[in-house]
Write a protein that binds this DNA or RNA. Structure first.
Length: 565
RNA sequence: GCGCCCAUAGCUCAGCUGGAUAGAGCGUCUGACUACGGAUCAGAAGGUCGGGUGUUCGAAUCAUCCUGGGCGCGCCA
């Protein structure tokens, strides 16, 4: 059986090598129960001199087989070495198996990658499993700030990555439009409105929302309705109108800001709606039926402490008001009923204390909490060069996402948010993000893409045919830099798969940066378009493949891949 | 006080869930096209992976303790 004659023509090399090793291990350990055999892991070696791939399986097997790892490695290597399509197999160190493929294997792989185009990296790993990714979900009480921006970038990129990895994904925004914060919002707008009408003399209360945007909304309301909403006898009567007005316009603004950030949600779910159509009540009834509620001090409690949380939590307050916790359980019960295998929630890290209680509650209504994944995104420190930018939500002084997008651009903002692990603190430097210099990593990647486009334009101007297929001889691609590029392209599906599995978009950011670096280096050393027709054609195939992967990698981050800059 | 997260080069951070001599960008220093875009490239210097103990063939990675920083501990959302 030929190693590279797979029924799936788009399989990356690493998986093929793994399959080969698994076969060999099967022969070697035929009498060992399969379930105690260690998983075969194949990865690039630390040092390229060791070859294309390395596996530590012999050392893992040593434990099970109770044999010297080097002996095992030698035997496995002997089996692999018989294959014609493997150039060399070596045993090194304590028992690493190092595998080298012939250049023809790599050019053959390049051909497949090229023909796959921007679909290279699409995988079936998700097997169509249904995932909901819920993110942002900010209260419609004010514009999105920069912290929301990070959550938005992470959530949206996760959606893109999961889709690429073969999952069926729905993105959703949960609108927290119920509760007393909305009432406070209404009162705040009402107050600003009355101030405009000259009805108020006292200073604006500290407990109200402080942002300037409420003054703008009040002006707008006044333009639309004049002073007809001034009702000195019964201010509460018109309060719902203010609340509804503020909530609706702020949510529209949030939606616009997200659109400017390249984000469109598949679905929006209203918390208020959950209350109004009885889903919250049904959930509470369900908890009661399952014996998961008790009454104390006039309130209804969920015994979360029985399932790992610090203390029990109130579901219905003694005044009859249902808590946010209640609606949140109901919301996740609803997600479950909509048939999602996995529910991913992207939250600010300051909500981490909330995770155990919700996980416990889901478990209590029969939802395996392993299906509930919370990605905690750490807060963002905004910097302007060395100087921290002061932000205080309370004082209404915060930098909005919109301001950041306007100042540094969507691409830089998204890339910066996705450069770090979600659970790592992020310093966001506005000056750096804005600078069109070599300090800025966004341009580095985009420039690589634009440069390739430029090469293709040059080739076209010179009358060189741009290869549309790779169905010709690529054997002139034998330089180490060229093989290195192909290996990197080959690894893209692994990056997508891993980023999806561990919910870490920053892996894609690193990948595209590394791929761009390999390309820039190659570009500076070797000409693509030259007098040699065969070499030119082969190199055009290579750089076009690089372009495709840069493009789809950036696509996963929601960053544009410009043809010129 | 209890819980969660973090600690890796001067700075900002990766490290492919336990592998070989710990990497990248920025900054610093030295260099590179009269050719496809110099927003680029080549090279150098820079480390007790916060500290201790443990687990094993093998630890930045796992366990545990300590130190230091962030966050959370409401009948708020």
């Amino acid at each position: 059986m030929g190693l590279f004659r797979s029924h799936r023509t788009w399989v990356h090399m690493r998986n093929l090598i793994r399959t080969c090793l698994e076969e060999a291990v099967g022969h070697l350990a035929a009498d060992v129960a399969a379930d105690i055999l260690p998983e075969v892991v194949v990865e690039p070696p630390r040092d390229r001199q060791f070859g294309d791939f390395a596996s530590n399986i012999a050392m893992q097997l040593a434990r099970v087989l109770k044999r010297n790892p080097r002996d095992i490695a030698v035997e496995l290597a002997a089996m692999l070495g018989e294959r014609e399509d493997i150039a060399a197999v070596d045993v090194a160190g304590p028992g690493f198996i190092n595998i080298t493929l012939p250049p023809s294997a790599w050019t053959g792989q390049l051909r497949r990658i090229f023909q796959r185009g921007t679909r290279w990296g699409e995988d079936e790993g998700g097997r169509g499993r249904r995932v909901m990714v819920e993110f942002v979900s900010a209260n419609p009480t004010g514009p999105l700030h920069i912290g929301h921006g990070r959550g938005a970038a992470v959530g949206d990129s996760l959606v893109r990555i999961l889709r690429k990895a073969g999952y069926t994904v729905i993105s959703e925004y949960y609108i927290n439009d119920a509760g007393n914060q909305m009432e406070t919002l209404g009162r705040s707008l009402q107050r600003r409105y009355l101030e405009l009408a000259g009805e108020i003399n006292e200073s604006y209360p500290e407990t109200y929302y402080q942002g300037e945007y409420l003054v703008d909304l009040a002006r707008r309301l006044r333009e639309e309705r004049g002073t007809e909403l001034v009702d000195p006898t019964d201010p509460d009567a018109s309060l719902p109108l203010f609340t509804e007005y503020a909530g609706r316009l702020i949510l529209d603004g949030i939606s616009d800001d997200l659109a400017a950030f390249g984000i469109r949600f598949d679905n929006w779910t209203s918390e208020k709606q959950l209350f109004e159509d009885g889903r919250v009540d049904r959930l509470i009834a369900e908890l009661r039926e399952r014996g998961q509620l008790y009454e104390q001090d006039g309130a209804l409690w969920f015994p979360a402490s029985r399932m790992g949380d610090e203390k029990d939590r109130v579901v219905v307050r003694s005044n009859g008001v249902k808590t946010y916790f209640a609606s949140d359980i109901a919301y996740h019960r609803d997600k479950d009923e909509r048939g999602f295998d996995v529910m991913v929630d992207v939250w600010g890290a300051d909500h981490h204390g909330y995770v155990p209680r919700l996980a416990a509650a889901l478990q209590a209504v029969g939802i395996d909490s392993a299906r509930f994944v919370v990605i905690l995104v750490q807060l963002v420190s905004l910097m302007r060069g060395e100087q921290p930018v002061a932000m205080s939500t309370r004082a209404g002084q915060f930098v909005t996402l919109r301001e950041v997008i306007d100042e540094v651009g969507k691409d830089a903002a998204r890339f910066f948010f996705l450069m770090r692990r979600p659970d790592s603190h992020l310093d966001f430097d506005l000056e750096l993000a804005k600078s069109q210099s070599n300090e800025n990593p966004v341009y580095y990647v985009q420039y690589a893409h634009a440069r390739i486009c430029s090469i293709l334009r040059t080739a076209a101007e010179k009358g060189v045919a741009i290869p549309q297929t790779a169905a010709f001889d690529l054997s002139s691609l034998h330089l180490e830099e060229e093989l290195e590029l192909i290996r990197k392209l080959d690894a893209f599906p692994v990056v997508v798969e891993t980023a999806a599995a561990v919910f870490e978009p920053h892996r894609v950011s690193y990948y595209v940066s590394e791929l761009a670096a390999l390309f820039h280096s190659y570009y500076n050393r070797h000409r693509v378009v030259s007098e040699d027709g065969a070499v030119t054609a082969a190199r055009l195939v290579l750089v076009q493949a690089v372009r495709n992967i840069l493009q789809s990698g950036l696509e996963l981050l929601g960053v544009d891949a410009p043809e010129s800059m």
